[in-house]
């Protein structure tokens, strides 16, 4: 069974002018259906305003569909009785590293989720330890979050979700406000969770180099799914990506241009190693 399934998910909100009169209706997510299997690493791409963040917020019942349904672990998120189960099953990490840390000490922040779930004290400490170790932040457990770098703060946030033992973790542009080092740290931590702990990971981003290792990529545009497939399938369509205001890694772009110039090189080159191999075959 799929861990997450959306059925014709549509989300609309009403725009009002200063007097409160209805100006119009914006459809942020438009009739989207997809399935995510347990243990998958799925990337959701799209330019700003494409509806990808709105979609993400439906996956742990922060927003509810105007039409259609979202099922998490078979449960309809719109039903009140399922609310807390859904949020326990799917954890969420947000964009701004400062605005999601509640504790004044790293370890206390990680304990916040389990406390809410009513986990016994001794087990909270165990969960704190294993979660912080999983993201490589255990040695910082006594520090104030204000003294950490952006990448470290995001790793603490991931640990905070991890300590709730979710089956799936949704990361809503977790790297948008980080520097390259921080971005690498966070992506490495997410990949480790997916590889080692087998937690389903859904990464929302517009950095193309972060999705190379995903199992599946969904590209959003104007609230709809514009493309879906493996990273290779997606990166094979450079021109289409450009038309969706997205970018490809420089190596992919280079391979694409070489192909256009008449070289017999496959589309959808993702890494330098693949590129080198492809060129060796051209010689």
């Amino acid at each position: 069974m799929a861990i997450i399934k959306t059925d014709n998910l549509t989300f609309e909100y009403i725009r009002r002018d200063e007097e409160g009169n209805v100006e119009g209706i914006t459809t942020a997510v438009d009739n989207v259906s997809f399935e995510i299997k347990r243990g998958e690493f799925v990337a959701i791409l799209g330019h700003n305003g494409s509806g990808k963040s709105t979609l993400a917020k439906h996956l742990n019942a922060i927003l509810f569909p105007t039409e259609g349904t979202v099922f998490v672990d078979g449960k309809d998120t719109s039903e009140d009785a399922n609310l807390w189960d859904v949020r326990e099953t799917v954890g969420m990490v947000f964009q701004n590293p400062d605005n999601q840390i509640i504790g004044q000490v790293v370890e206390e922040d990680v304990g916040f989720g389990p406390e809410n779930l009513g986990v016994p004290t001794a087990e909270i400490w165990e969960r704190m330890e294993e979660s912080l170790k999983a993201v490589g932040m255990y040695e910082f457990r006594k520090k104030s979050p204000n003294r950490l770098s952006g990448g470290q703060k995001q790793r603490v946030s991931i640990a905070g979700v991890l300590a709730m033992h979710p089956q799936c973790i949704v990361l809503d542009e977790p790297t948008a406000m980080l520097d390259p080092i921080g971005r690498k740290e966070v992506i490495r931590a997410v990949r480790a969770l997916n590889d080692v702990e087998k937690i389903t990971a859904i990464l929302i981003t517009h950095y193309m180099d972060e999705i190379v290792h995903a199992d599946k990529v969904i590209v959003m545009d104007k609230g709809k799914i514009a493309m879906a497939g493996t990273p290779r399938e997606i990166f094979s369509q450079v021109d289409k990506l450009k038309s969706l205001s997205l970018d490809v890694p420089q190596v992919t772009m280079c391979a694409h241009k070489l192909r256009e110039a008449g070289l017999n090189i496959p589309e959808g080159i993702l890494t330098n190693d693949e590129f080198v191999k492809a060129l060796q075959q051209c010689q």
Binding site: N60, I62, W84, R87, E88, G91, M92, F94, I102, E107, E108, G111, F112, G113, P114, E115, N116, L117, G118, V119, P120, T121, I124, W125, M128, G160, V161, M164
Partner: peptide, 14 residues
């Protein structure tokens, strides 16, 4: 998103 729902039923880490 981290299941906070007031003080009811909450345990304490410390």
């Amino acid at each position: 998103a981290r299941c906070y729902r007031g003080g009811e039923g909450r345990t304490k880490m410390k």
